[in-house]
């Protein structure tokens, strides 16, 4: 869905769903994952449907991920950091009726 224009930037190591990547520093978790071709970030809380990044500016709260063990982190706002462990956020609550 996206491609990178250049490949000459400083890298940090992150993992997403157990898979390791080296990604450009100075960017958000969301853009790092999109650059690696990952679009599905979480499942929705009511209907368990796939969701990904949408607004990329902190408005929509659709890009929520589990980062370093903490759920509901805004992937488009949190900068990538060395050794970040990132997981899809699978709706952990009970779905309301």
């Amino acid at each position: 869905m996206f491609r990178k224009l250049s490949e000459d930037r400083i890298k940090v190591r992150i993992s997403f769903e157990g898979e390791e990547f080296f990604v450009d520093t100075d960017q958000s978790v969301a853009s790092a994952l999109l650059a690696e071709g990952h679009q599905v970030f979480r499942s929705s809380v009511i209907n368990n449907q796939p969701r990904g990044a949408f607004c990329m500016m902190g408005v929509c709260f659709d890009c929520l991920l589990e980062i370093n063990g903490r759920p509901n982190q805004q992937a488009c706002m949190v900068p990538v950091k060395e050794n970040m462990v990132i997981k899809r956020q699978i709706s952990s609550g009970n779905n309301p009726s």
Binding site: P71, S91, N95
Partner: peptide, 20 residues
């Protein structure tokens, strides 16, 4: 936020909803 259901009681000041 919603989380796993761990507290199946009511209290006057704290409870966990059906949605977690």
């Amino acid at each position: 936020e919603r989380t796993k259901r761990v507290f199946p009681f009511a209290t006057g000041r704290l409870r966990q909803n059906a949605d977690g």
